[in-house]
Design a protein around this nucleic acid. Structure first.
Lengths: 144, 144
DNA sequence: CAAAAAAGCTACACATGTTAACCACAAGAG
DNA sequence: CTCTTGTGGTTAACATGTGTAGCTTTTTTG
């Protein structure tokens, strides 16, 4: 009765953050070598995954607000990693695509990134790892 | 063979981020009403959890770099939510404590915060929810 | 004691978060 | 057809956070 607060380890948001930092820390180091921020990398991954995606959808999938995304897309465009095109049907809309250079950057870094995550998978065990991913995706789909 | 990349939904860092945003979004709204950022709240929770903690330990538990933490502690100090004291044994060190006002802020917001998380727990089911927390804590303890 | 290490702080450059205002185009109502 | 409303996206401005380097003070160690 003295303390009804959940310990931070049993606080879902904090536990999610700590787990993420554990995995993301090493990956951030990788990315800084090729001068990409974590967010830029995330956007690039999302764009690569869904060719012809529009900014609103990217923002949603990459968990970014549109104004932040606008700036990030400008940076990625400057770097030649994505291309932007106006939708001919709805001319408010933009169509974003990854360029060959963008694909190349992903190619060059995804292996090391996967290797880091794979070490985690091995230490956790395949089943627990997959179970974790399933639970995370469930959580993401909750309360739409 | 055409595409060896994991979909972003099966990418552990991205899945962790999306799940976190889902839960944290509503909580951030709460906090902005009392003029606290997410990080300030996190620091406050950590300080409350471990009275007499020092900045290095806080930074570790709250997933912040020391320079960021320094500023956050200054802000929290200005607001009167924490107190700082020099350690008499090792005078390089500082001892951080939550103040009565700080406890009060937590009291005033933790209920709504827990309510948000509880809705998630109900939708996921108790067991799956607890399993998720266990897996996250495991992940955090990996690769020390 | 001198040198190395640890705990923090400061400063700086840059990226992101956040809100509001704004522009161009689209879609509906009358 | 035009007026209003809605949508997609950008810009601006400011707060905050990130990341690196260098500095001070105090401790520890050779």
């Amino acid at each position: 009765m003295k303390n009804r607060l959940p310990s931070t380890a049993r606080s879902l948001p904090i536990a999610l953050l700590r787990a993420r930092e554990r995995v993301m820390g090493p990956i951030r180091n990788l990315l800084s070598d090729v001068d990409l921020t974590e967010q830029q990398w995330r956007v690039l991954r999302v764009v690569q995954e869904t060719a012809g995606i529009d900014p609103t959808e990217i923002a949603d999938q990459a968990c970014l607000l549109l104004p932040s995304l606008t700036r990030i897309l400008q940076k990625l465009d400057e770097k030649g990693l994505i291309s932007r095109e106006r939708d001919k049907v709805d001319r408010r809309r933009q169509i974003i695509r990854i360029t060959a250079a963008g694909e190349k950057i992903i190619e060059a870094n995804i292996a090391a990134s996967i290797a880091i995550v794979d070490r985690t998978r091995e230490k956790m065990g395949e089943e627990r790892y997959e179970a974790l991913l399933d639970l995370l995706n469930d959580l993401d789909e909750i309360e739409l």
